[in-house]
Nucleic acid binder design. Structure first.
Lengths: 235, 235
DNA sequence: AAGTGGTCTAGACCACTGC
DNA sequence: CAGTGGTCTAGACCACTTT
């Protein structure tokens, strides 16, 4: 219970949205009702609702009330293909090695990044994707375990966790941040690259019906990987 | 003047960051000092600093203090959006310096990249885009000179070549390649960054009715720039 | 008029950091 | 130890919307 009160209030609201008791468009309890029901001060209720509103879960209207926000819709011209596909498309042999697979509970910072309840279980996977035996991507991924608990025991020799998730969980949105940076010693070693060389980092959050499905940090040796795409210019 | 107090406090802090009186890494006044100096309650000062921290302008450390965060401009990979806009959208002062402007003829390798006849004339422009005086992007651009010959003599103090091109030449398509790499000494110097730090490189070809309009190599300091956007991914 | 969100205050307790 | 950010409260005033 070592969590801020406003965080508890946020989870309370998110729980009701997730389990369907508050549907999209529904009016949810007012700040004063939350004050009464949860025995918190109004400032605490206010902060919870304000943050959820900024995060896109709620819509607030002055004088009217607070409502469950419609889900975000996606329209994105740019397509990022699976790394395994990409490698095979170039005629190279795809392989990968699993570095780590563990259950993770009570990891509050990650759970908060994923806007998941504090008791949610995560599966943490780290693996390296290779083309003709040469490392191309280090994938460090957290998955909401209720979406695919069998990931914990799945044999990855035939299908990668990425491809498995793609098939199993219908996604409707992804959020990407792309950066250039320098590798840690561990990352450089895993990617078999010098520490003095740049890495291209993709931070990705994927959303399913029920919220954030997984977050991944993808590290690529700068000399062996590039993102490319042709798309419309707006002007 | 009908603005929330916490917003005034935020602007107060941003003003000091923008005018340089509080530099990156500097410790800024504590909540209690702001309470004294601006005659606001601590909750108000707290909300201002908390929001600025979430927005990426400040870093807060429990028990130590609040510090000016390193800059990081973010661009959208889906659109050909001008860096000047991005910087202004963040509320920072845009400026740029022209490093080179020359006519270029018989440069076969570039002409080939642009699929242009061997006798075509090109305009070669190199400039640095800055946010509050800090370099964010080195732009190295070749333009098919028949599309905008006046670029050679245009005064760039009011409009950047990028913005000018966006207005003048209707673009149909753009092709992007994103890479991470290490800067040359020249590039590092122009961007005022260490040579040991990574750069994010965007290689862009833009197409007009009549074919390739221009190609550009855009170099960004990895620590100050990121690409972000929501688009379709694989999982 | 009653209910809602938006803001603000003064004071409080805590955990963490530095000296 | 004093200073910092992190949180929480009880009560207040306001502007807006619905009845």
């Amino acid at each position: 219970m070592n969590q801020p009160l406003y965080e508890t209030v946020k989870q309370h609201v998110l729980d009701h949205i997730r389990d369907g008791s508050w549907q999209v468009g529904d009016k949810i309890p007012s700040e004063n009702e939350l004050v009464r029901d949860l025995s918190v001060s109004r400032m605490t209720a206010n902060r919870a609702l304000r943050e959820l509103s900024k995060e896109g879960f709620l819509l607030r209207e002055h004088g009217r009330g607070t409502f469950v926000a419609p889900r975000r819709v996606s329209g994105h011209p740019l397509e990022v293909r699976s790394i395994a596909e990409e490698i095979r498309a170039r005629g190279e042999k795809y392989s990968m090695s699993l570095l780590l697979r563990e259950d993770k509970e009570g990891c509050l910072d990650i759970l908060q990044e994923m806007s998941l309840p504090n008791k949610s279980k995560l599966i943490h996977i780290t693996l390296v994707h290779k083309a003709d035996g040469v490392p191309m991507q280090l994938e460090d991924r957290y998955v909401h375990s209720t979406l695919a608990p069998e990931l914990m025991h799945l044999d990855f020799s035939n299908i990668s966790p990425t491809d498995y998730l793609l098939n199993k969980v219908p996604l409707h949105q992804a959020e990407h941040i792309v950066r250039a940076g320098m590798p840690t010693a561990t990352i450089a070693a895993a990617l078999e690259m010098p520490e003095s060389e740049a890495v291209l980092i993709i931070y990705r959050r994927t959303f399913s019906d029920s919220g954030v499905a997984s977050i991944a940090k993808l590290y690529h040796p700068g000399s062996r990987f590039e993102l490319s795409g042709a798309f419309q210019g707006e002007g």
